Simulated scan of single mutants.
Amino acid sequence: MNLKQLRYVVEIVKNANHLSAAAEALNTSQPGVSRQIQLLEAELGFAIFVRANNRFTGLTEGGEHVFAIAQRALAEVNALRGLKEDMGSGGKGNLIVATTHTQARYFLPPIIERFLERHPNVRLTLKQGDPAYACELVGAGEADLAIGAEPIRVFPQLISLPCAELRRSVIAKTGHPILEVEPLTLAAVAAHPIVTYDRRYSGHWIVMQAFAQAGLEPKIMLSAVDADVCKAYVESGLGIAILSSLTFDPKRDADLRMRDASHIFPSSVVNISLRTNSYLRPIILDFVRAVAPHLTPRVVSDALLAATASAKAG
């Protein structure tokens, strides 16, 4: 077996078991990918993928273990490449941050600006998606860290360290009656059409759970993956939005108004997610501290050691 074969396994799973899509992503041929998987299965002595009509439909029980090991192996290889960069870069290097739109658009710009002032020779890349996608990239070794709210599903190969709190507000068009209601209650908010985050984001479920616990069923007019889209439809008069307070910019959102709603909707926690059992380059640790000053290299190291020990004990 070899790293290429393990990379093929990971890429096939990432592409929903579609060989053609995996081959395209790997810049190779579909027969070549299929052949390498067959060779790996022959060497292991069991099937990695479930097949139906000559198509992959999922992972076998053994395949689940192969996939997990392949992800760890590739992540470690990427870590070695990072170490090589650090040892011979003279302050240069690449840093890949996976994050959500809200963090990339509103939370990270001033942090990244200050970070790059201190590290002018570092090339920083942002990869955007929903929280689960960001964590997937880190787990696969395709990003150094993820920044975002808690994903819907669990990623046992990662550790999440809280770095910020996101309070919620109601955002409405200037003159909207919700801006004058006293006191602001869940019932008052539910009386109007609502624009909010897509269900892939924890913000959606936190808001919906608050309504459900109050016995209310709001009318969701629109769900979107980013706050800017939500605000655009609020400006069009289609409803009010329940968004993270940091997404409101008084200068850019001149036709809108924000009203604090943290007393009726719980806050979200923004996490920095890192791979356990992985070498963290100094540039990664420095960026983590730039995002959250309390997350010093010692704090991060202790948290990773604790997570590793817990995993071994389990």
Rank of each mutant, 00 (worst) to 15 (best):
I37K: 02
H101I: 12
K92H: 02
H204T: 10
H18L: 14
I206L: 12
L74G: 07
V33G: 09
R275A: 00
A16D: 07
H294E: 10
V170L: 03
A313Q: 04
E11H: 05
A306V: 10
D286E: 15
N27T: 11
I284T: 12
L304I: 09
A68C: 08
Q209E: 12
E41N: 04
I240E: 09
A307T: 05
T60A: 04
I178D: 06
S244D: 15
G141M: 04
I284C: 05
L158V: 14
H176M: 07
R72K: 15
L145N: 06
I272L: 12
V33Q: 10
L116N: 13
G141N: 06
F115Y: 08
K251N: 11
E142F: 11
T174F: 08
P131K: 12
G139H: 01
A172K: 08
P193C: 00
R123G: 07
S268Y: 14
Y201C: 10
V122E: 02
G32Y: 01
V300G: 03
P120W: 01
A232C: 12
G91F: 08
A75C: 02
H101M: 15
T100G: 02
E217T: 11
M221P: 07
T102Y: 01
G148N: 04
R298P: 09
A22D: 03
V229Y: 11
A187N: 09
P218N: 08
F67C: 03
G215A: 08
F107M: 15
W205V: 15
E117Y: 01
F248H: 01
A25P: 04
I264Q: 06
I69H: 14
A188S: 13
T57A: 04
T60I: 02
I69A: 15
D253Q: 04
D249Q: 00
L80Y: 14
S169Y: 09
T28W: 10
V33I: 02
L186C: 10
M258F: 11
R200P: 02
P162G: 07
S89K: 05
K251S: 08
V33E: 01
I37W: 06
I242K: 10
Y201W: 15
P156E: 08
E43C: 08
K231V: 03
W205N: 07
H263W: 14
P151C: 06
Q38N: 13
A292Y: 05
V97T: 13
L243C: 06
V269S: 09
L6Q: 00
D249S: 06
D255R: 11
